[in-house]
């Protein structure tokens, strides 16, 4: 993976609009006036030290966390108390977690069919066909009848990506998808993500895989202390960071 994936942003259509969002955990101010706008087909990488609010930000986008102030709009739907709106947004927004979170009591195939059948009322047969298609796409169709516990971490994460794709989402959120993986398994997951990016999927990735960011991202966002510190194209972000906090962070993570 060396050639830069060309930008797929063709329209001005905004998919996600985060406006002046504030959030507190108890008294801890975790998101401070965060604003972010994501266009259709755009790939965004968010990085920053732990506790900077980057995971919280993307978890607000599918309302796994509730923001207290500001406004989040996904595909024109405003996220508020309305459970129906929330569920509709979640069907449109796929999420991949650091700990995979596959359902251990279901086979791989059942993991993939679960949401299409129970959230979209898709007939089981059709859901299976879709599932097999995505399993082939992430390269583990032969594991369909196994249970998650029988797969390696990298395979589980690829299944988790396929499981999200089965809902045919318009946006994919990645919350540190490679942080729990052995070094040798990171690449197989990143390859799937790069392939997904080149297919034109709108993606927001919280990750510290800087090679991935350079290759795929249209924009890199650096967060610290609950706010967006710096935001730029990957080349400018990595080669010429404007703010001292960003410079310090990059020198720390690129040093090793």
């Amino acid at each position: 993976m060396t050639t830069k994936i060309e930008s797929r942003v063709t329209t001005n259509e905004t998919v996600i609009e985060v406006a002046k969002v504030n959030k507190w955990f108890g008294d801890f101010h975790v998101l401070k006036d965060v604003s972010l706008s994501v266009k259709k087909g755009e790939r965004i990488v968010i990085c920053g030290p732990s506790g900077s609010g980057k995971s919280t930000l993307i978890r607000c986008i599918n309302h796994l966390e509730e923001h207290q102030e500001g406004r989040i709009t996904v595909n024109g739907t405003v996220l508020d108390e309305n459970l129906k709106n929330i569920t509709n947004v979640r069907r449109e927004v796929g999420m991949v977690f650091q700990q995979f979170n596959l359902f251990p009591h279901m086979t791989i195939l059942d993991n993939l069919c679960f949401a299409p059948v129970w959230a979209r009322n898709m007939p089981r047969k059709e859901a299976e066909d879709t599932a097999v298609m995505y399993l082939e796409r992430v390269g583990i169709a032969e594991q369909r009848d196994k249970y998650p516990g029988q797969l390696s971490g990298g395979q589980q994460q690829r299944v988790a990506i396929a499981r999200s794709l089965c809902m045919n989402p318009s946006v994919m959120l990645f919350d540190e998808p490679t942080s729990a993986l052995d070094p040798e398994m990171i690449k197989e997951v990143l390859d799937v993500m790069v392939e997904l990016a080149s297919s034109g999927m709108t993606m927001i990735c919280v990750t510290h895989e800087m090679s991935f960011a350079r290759l795929v991202a249209d924009r890199v966002i650096f967060m610290d202390g609950g706010e967006i510190v710096e935001e730029n194209t990957p080349d400018k972000f990595f080669d010429n960071p404007q703010i001292d906090r960003t410079q310090k962070f990059l020198s720390q993570i690129l040093a090793h």
Binding site: R90, M95, W118, A119, M167
Partner: peptide
């Protein structure tokens, strides 16, 4: 683990299901 609930909700499955 909380992640199980989150994964299912994030897929758009209703809380009851």
């Amino acid at each position: 683990p909380k992640g199980q609930t989150e994964a299912s909700l994030a897929l758009g499955v209703s809380p009851n299901r």
